[in-house]
Amino acid sequence: MAKPFTLTQLRYFAVVAELENMTAAAEQLHVTQSALSASLAQLEASLSTQLFVRLKTRGLRLTGSGRQFALDIKVFLEQADSLYESARGMGTSLVGELKVGVFAPLAPFRLPTILQTFETEHPGVEVSFMEADLAELQSALLDGQCDTALMYGLGLGRGFTHQVLERVPPHVLVHAGHPAASRPSRQIALKELDGEPSVVLDLPHSREYYQQLYAAAGVRPNVRHRFAGYETVRSFVAKGHGYALLNQRLHSDVTYSGGRVVALALTDDFPPIEVMLVRPEGVQPTRRALAFEETCAQVYWAAKD
C-alpha cells in the first residue's frame, strides 16, 4: 500500500529540520512559507506524529521523533537522488552534500590531503566541515548536524559506531634550550619534569586524558597556562613558558612565534589516543559518507608506509 506522503514533503522536511526556521527554509527552497507550512502539516498528519514543536519566539524545534526521522530519511533521499542519476546514465557517480565533523587539533594534519583525494575521486560531492571539540562533535552527530566525524575516541559514549584509523602515543614537547632537548635518545620520563611549569591543551576529554597520564606517573602538574589551540600551546612552549604533553606531532619544529620546539618520546607506558571515524549507531550511512570514510582510511594507511 502506498504511503500517504510525497518525496517533495520529505525534501521540505529535511531542509526545515536542518535550519529549524520556517522563513529561512522557505527562502532556500524557493517556496512560500504558507506552502511549506501546509506541506509539513500534511506530513505530520500522514505519519500521525508530531515532528516539530512550534515556538513563538524561537521558531521550530525538532521533537525526538522528528530528530530520528530526519536521520532516517537521509539515506532514503540519497537513494532517490541515485535513482534519478541512474536514469540519466550517471549512476556510478556520487552527488550531493556531505557534512563532516572534525576535532579541531586534528584538522591541520591529514584532513587537507583527505579532501583533496576525495574531491578528485568524487567531484560531484560538496563537502563541508564542522570543526569542534570532542563533546560538541558527539552532540552534532546525534543531532544529525554531520554525517561522520574524524576525532579522538576519548570520552566516546554509547550510541556510536567507530573505525580506528591510528593510535598515537603521547609525547613531551620542550623548547630548544631545555636541558632534555639535547639528549641523543630524545626520550624522557614524565616524572623528570615534576615541578616544572607546563602548558596544557585544555579541551573537553583531552584534559581528562592528560590528567590520567600525570596521575599514572605520580606527577602533580604545575600548570602555568591553558589554551584551546594546539599551535598556541606549541608557541608558548617554544618561548620557554613550560613543557607540554601532546599526541599529534608536526613535521616542523618551528612555531608561529618563531621559536623552536623539540619532541621527546616518553619512556612511560602510557596508553595512546585512538584517531577514529565516528557516526551514530543504528543510522544507515549514506554512500557519500562511506566513500569519505574509505578515503580517510586510505590516506591514514598510506601515511604509515
Rank of each mutant, 00 (worst) to 15 (best):
M1K: 13
K3L: 15
P4G: 09
L7F: 05
T8K: 13
T8Y: 05
Q9I: 03
R11A: 13
Y12F: 15
Y12Q: 14
V15C: 12
E18M: 12
E20N: 03
M22I: 14
L29S: 04
V31C: 12
S34E: 10
L36R: 08
L36T: 01
S39H: 08
A45V: 05
S48F: 14
S48K: 14
L55E: 07
L55A: 10
T57W: 06
L62Y: 14
G64K: 10
Q68C: 03
F69W: 09
F69D: 03
A70R: 10
F76A: 13
E78Y: 12
A80I: 10
S82C: 02
M90I: 11
S93W: 11
V95H: 14
E97F: 07
L98C: 04
L98Y: 09
G101W: 05
A104D: 10
L106S: 05
R110V: 00
P112N: 11
F118A: 08
V125N: 10
E126M: 14
E126W: 09
V127Q: 08
E131W: 01
E131G: 03
L137H: 04
S139G: 10
S139L: 07
A140P: 02
A140G: 11
L141K: 04
G144M: 01
G144K: 01
Q145N: 10
L150T: 01
M151P: 01
Y152A: 09
L154A: 15
G155M: 04
G157E: 08
G159P: 03
F160L: 02
V164F: 08
V164Q: 10
V172C: 11
L173E: 02
H175A: 07
H178W: 03
A180K: 09
S182Y: 09
L193R: 01
G195T: 05
D202A: 11
D202S: 11
L203V: 10
L203N: 10
L203Y: 12
P204I: 03
P204E: 04
Q212G: 07
Q212E: 08
L213M: 15
Y214I: 02
Y214K: 10
A215T: 12
G218K: 13
R220C: 06
N222A: 15
V223P: 13
F227Q: 09
A228G: 04
G229Y: 11
G229A: 15
T232F: 06
F236M: 15
A238L: 05
A238T: 02
G242K: 01
Y243K: 02
Y243H: 11
A244R: 12
Q248K: 15
T255S: 13
Y256C: 00
G259I: 07
V261I: 15
L264V: 04
L264H: 00
A265K: 06
T267D: 13
E274F: 00
V278I: 12
E281H: 12
A289R: 03
A291Q: 12
E293D: 13
E294Q: 12
E294K: 11
A297F: 11
A297H: 09
Y300V: 00
Y300M: 02
W301S: 14
A303Y: 09
